[in-house]
Structure formats: C-alpha cells, structure tokens
Amino acid sequence: MKHSWLFILGMLFVSCTQSKPRRAINKVKASKKVEYSILYNKKINSIQEKLIKDYIQKDSLLTYEYSPYGFAYAVVKSSTKPKKVIKESSVLTFSKSVFLLNNKEVYPEEILTVKLNTSNLIKGIIEGLKLMREDEEIKFIFSSFVAHGLNGDKNKIGSHTPIVVNIKLLKINN
C-alpha cells in the first residue's frame, strides 16, 4: 500500500511538467521559398506568353484579342443574334474541342450543357463563354495559369501546358 501511493505521487509529479517547444528542423526561411516560387512562376509565364505569341503569328487567318482575364481569343464565326447577358445562374449549351499549341487534338468535340455557377469548367472557359453570343464560334488560347495550372488535368493535359479551345455557343437559357 505504501508503494502504490509513492507510485501515484510520482506519476502526478511527472505528468504535470510542461514540455518545452522544439525548434524547427528546416531553417530555410519561408520568404526565400515564396521568392523562389514567384520567380519560377514568372519564368513559366514568360515562356508560355512567347509560345502563345508564336502560335498567334502563325495563325494569320484570324485576328486575336487579349482578354483582361489573361487569355487570347479570335472570333471564327460571328453571330448576328443579339447579345444576351450571361449570368452566373445561366444554363449554357455549347460544343468544345481542345488542342495543344502544336494543333494536336487532346479532346475531340463534345456538346455540353452546364449551369455556369455549378460547373467544373476551367476559369478561362467560364470567362470566355461570358464574351460570346448564341451561334458564335470562338477560338481561345489559354495559358496554363487560366487553364489547368500546375497539375494539368491529370489525364491528357500535362502540367504548365497552354491549350487551344474551340467553342461554339449553341444556346443560352437564363
């Protein structure tokens, strides 16, 4: 009985001590990693901008414009229909095909019907659709930053890969 009280008293003494915080093993400052990441992304962006400009120069049949959202686009077939305001809740039906900058087809043409605010489309396509009219066809060139980014689509489009997307807007339901 005497020994059990000593054991309990010893356990209370040991369990009540506070542990001291340990120092970080990695001594590289976080700011250095952020600076490296910024420089790395700027370099990738400049390479992709050059590739996109080269693609546009080779495609002399179309006149390209730059969107404030960071992509280039050209109207392939214009529409005479009046422009409808596309809202976040709009349901759009459109056809889409995806190519690499070397004109290799990645995804063949498919027809999609999506509600804009609940779709899993890339940001570039969402913003591009907002520029369109019904029965209009536009060719978009998206850098990887507006398309699938660092990881690609984890299927056919690799990381840091700019893409060309041909879209024909078929129907707008508000």
Rank of each mutant, 00 (worst) to 15 (best):
M1Y: 13
M1G: 15
M1W: 12
S4N: 04
S4I: 13
I8W: 11
L12M: 12
L12R: 01
V14N: 03
S15K: 04
K20P: 04
P21W: 02
R22S: 08
R23T: 07
A24H: 10
E35Y: 11
N41T: 00
I44P: 00
Q48Y: 09
Q48C: 00
Q48I: 12
E49C: 14
L51S: 08
L51Q: 13
Y55M: 00
I56E: 12
L62D: 06
G70E: 02
A74I: 04
V75R: 04
S78F: 10
S79N: 12
P82F: 05
K83T: 13
K87S: 15
K87F: 15
E88D: 09
S89Q: 13
L92D: 02
F99H: 07
L101Q: 11
E105M: 08
V106R: 09
I111P: 07
I111G: 10
L112P: 00
V114A: 05
L116A: 01
L116T: 03
N117K: 12
N117W: 08
S119R: 04
S119N: 00
K130Q: 10
K130S: 00
E134M: 01
I138W: 10
F145P: 03
A147D: 09
H148G: 06
G149K: 01
K154M: 03
T161E: 14
T161D: 06
L170S: 06
L170V: 12
I172D: 05
N173V: 14
N173L: 12
N174D: 15
